[in-house]
Design a protein around this nucleic acid. Structure first.
Lengths: 185, 185
DNA sequence: CGCCCCATGTAAGACGTTACATGATTGA
DNA sequence: TCAATCATGTAACGTCTTACATGGGGCG
């Protein structure tokens, strides 16, 4: 029933709607004009996604049509939508999330504070720190294992991936310090 | 005709096959066991992708079935496949590639040297440097513009994105120095 | 003999992309 | 009035996910 998995785009929509009730067009503008450009602003993605969310009972749209106004439909989260959003954000992290779903993780974190408060943000950061700490050494091993047999560009590409994870780990710790200034490191 | 766009997975397959003729199963193992885990190792993705590449005439499979061996089909690049791979790698970079297709860019770079030699790698790195140099300031502007209205976790998430691009730019310059030791910086 | 791994595939479904289509309203 | 923008959608298409299916070969 509530077993539906929601796509990243769907969750991004939920998160944005939680902050401000918006129309599909508003959301498209957000995706096309802000740093959330990594999500599609095409109508063929957004309107069907909104329809799905509404069919699942997670959002509800109401048509606004005052005189001298263009017809537009403003969507808001339902109680179930809020619950689903919270559940999505609080879902435990696994290594797979770090490897293939980093975008989703950052999206969850971005919404974590307004939706669940600082404690949820901190929990996310902590498990991200854990996963990265265990994953990065694996990557180093692969690098030294394959060093000889890889072309230089391949090796460099792998190093780039490693560096970016290390940079993310750094950021994670900085962010944790922002939330817990008294944390001893 | 050769107008077909090939998916990232398809290009990854082409690149790997260029280095070693392999069966679908071999390729799956690579995806599941190395840092290329970001690509799917599921048979439902790989076998259809191989079939498409073959239908496009970019690879050719030959069934190996010596006695006492399991049947397996080994794929090799055709001339057109090599050409297509080269074209894909040499395609000029645009900002969109940096925003939504970084994976693809790194994949192209990883194969650039064995396929096109150092000059192609260098060209890729240079245009990556250009794109990043122009994109990063935009992100900083967005950050300072939205600073007030964003929840802290949102701001931190944006900062994480910025940091990761800055880290990538750093890597790009390091890599360039690897290829051009005498470059003055 | 039975189980697990090799090796290949197919089918249903979900999602995003691209491109097209439609109307209403604002502004030059 | 004519173009641009607002605002919403639909249709076709390709691809990935998940799950299932199949058969041969090694191993205990």
């Amino acid at each position: 029933m509530t077993e539906s998995t929601i796509s990243n785009l769907g969750c991004a929509l939920l998160g944005l709607l939680q902050q401000n009730p918006s129309s599909g067009y508003d959301l498209r503008k957000i995706f096309s004009s802000t740093a959330m450009t990594s999500y599609s602003d095409s109508p063929g993605a957004i309107y069907p996604a909104l329809k799905r969310l509404q069919q699942q009972g997670l959002i509800r749209g109401s048509v606004e049509s005052g005189s001298g106004m263009r017809r537009r439909q403003v969507f808001r989260l339902t109680a179930r939508g809020t619950a689903e959003l919270k559940k999505w954000i609080a879902r435990p992290l696994a290594r797979a999330d770090v490897i293939r779903g980093l975008d989703g993780v950052m999206l969850r974190f971005a919404f974590s504070e307004p939706v669940g408060g600082p404690s949820v943000s901190i929990r996310l950061l902590r498990s991200l720190e854990t996963e990265l700490t265990s994953y990065i050494p694996d990557l180093h091993e692969q690098l030294s294992a394959g060093k000889a047999s890889m072309p230089m560009s391949g090796r460099l590409a792998l190093e780039s991936g490693i560096k970016s994870y290390e940079c993310l780990l750094q950021w994670t710790r900085d962010a944790l310090r922002t939330y817990e200034p008294k944390r001893k490191d």
